[in-house]
Design a binder for these strands. Sequence first.
DNA 1: CGCGGCATTGAGATGCGTCAAATGCGGTGG
DNA 2: CCACCGCATTTGACGCATCTCAATGCCGCG
Lengths: 241, 241
Amino acid sequence: MNLRQDIHNSDTPVVCQACEARHRGVCGALEPHQLLTLSKHSTKLTLEPGMELIGDSEKVDSYSNILAGVVKLTKMLSDGRQQIVGLQFAPDFLGRPFRSESSINAEAATEVLTCTFPKGVIDRMIRESPGLEHKLLQQTLKELDEAREWMVTLGRKTASEKVASFLLLIARNIDPAAADHKQATFDLPLTRADIADFLGLTIETVSRQLTKLRIDGVIQIENNRHVTVKDINRLERRSGI
Amino acid sequence: MNLRQDIHNSDTPVVCQACEARHRGVCGALEPHQLLTLSKHSTKLTLEPGMELIGDSEKVDSYSNILAGVVKLTKMLSDGRQQIVGLQFAPDFLGRPFRSESSINAEAATEVLTCTFPKGVIDRMIRESPGLEHKLLQQTLKELDEAREWMVTLGRKTASEKVASFLLLIARNIDPAAADHKQATFDLPLTRADIADFLGLTIETVSRQLTKLRIDGVIQIENNRHVTVKDINRLERRSGI
DNA sequence: CGCGGCATTGAGATGCGTCAAATGCGGTGG
DNA sequence: CCACCGCATTTGACGCATCTCAATGCCGCG
């Protein structure tokens, strides 16, 4: 008798078999037959940087799993001042359940690959499968923790601590080896303008703080985007913990 | 045959009958027999300002409904800089499901009345009643929206816009009539130090901005705590929308 | 080669923080 | 009832971190 529950078993739809959203994302809560239904209604999309996934106060009629790339969530004041209120990485779930209006804007920061489904299909599955709602609650709690963590950065850290905190955040999400090793290498998924909007600073201040970190030997920068952190601990010490 | 489902029917435990948490809070998702179980394990507590409900990185073994008063959620950096990352009003649910460690500190800002239960009882009910998890997801999403809204305030607003935004937040939560009328009156639930920690400012800056609003005739202040907003719209225009 | 978009660098302005003193208010005790 | 104390708040003077404005540099692309 073989009880082995291979997560790559043959019941799962072909398009889902190698998909990370089934391991760490919300799809992990779905039964094979639900995955099948969902996969019939899903589309894989590729988005170029700057393209909009969810428009501010537009009607939202779809959800997505982010399969690759970085999505920025932004909010704007009426006079154009902008703040990035969250970054989402694969395999995050993107969308606002139980509300057809979104008060935030979601935009591809890098090239982004998504698996997108109509809102209705998911909303129905939420109702019939408590496991999915549980996953959503967990992701929402994670986002809430991250948002509150970032509030401390925005409200109480200096410019130089903010930039260090940002680099750590990116390193941890893009180069998972960063946690173990002393060193990390990655491409910044954001422009200087985006970083400024994330940190509540100006482009110039961000740039100055980056060059300060470079001159102090904490990081190396090539081609404006490629960053090497020589010693993560040193960066941590500059992030205000 | 009487099908009337009176929300105040006699099946509900006595202690719950007049409780707002049943109308607008998480208890609304519970069946009468669950309410009964819960009420047997619940305690009503009164907390003086400054008392701690949840200690940073302490083991959390209880949840609470806030029945009256204001609770502040704070985070601290290692050198003592502090940020309030959320305010909770009745009938909010307080506690972090699925994790026994909390990374934030919850403290009574005013005198607070809570209905408190052991973590285990609620965790069990979550598992057996999807409606409760649904309520929790809704509250968590609401808190996430509020956190992101506040991130814009912290990152992109000026000191004077921050103080105006704060007064609006309090007015809307404490004097619900504020939405309709032009006018609002309330007691500030926070000291100047708390307000500063909420806005990412210093006490002195908060004080200066309040006197500016007073001199400009937008608000009146009596005894440091009692505020009257003469014209809500005028305050809104100063909040950076 | 020149152009446009991003990023860096510099000089000067300013909003907010820091430090210090004054004021007001509630409570306590004579 | 008044005098005094302690604490929260306000007010003032000054300094500095960050913003603003402007110039320069860098790189890819037509």
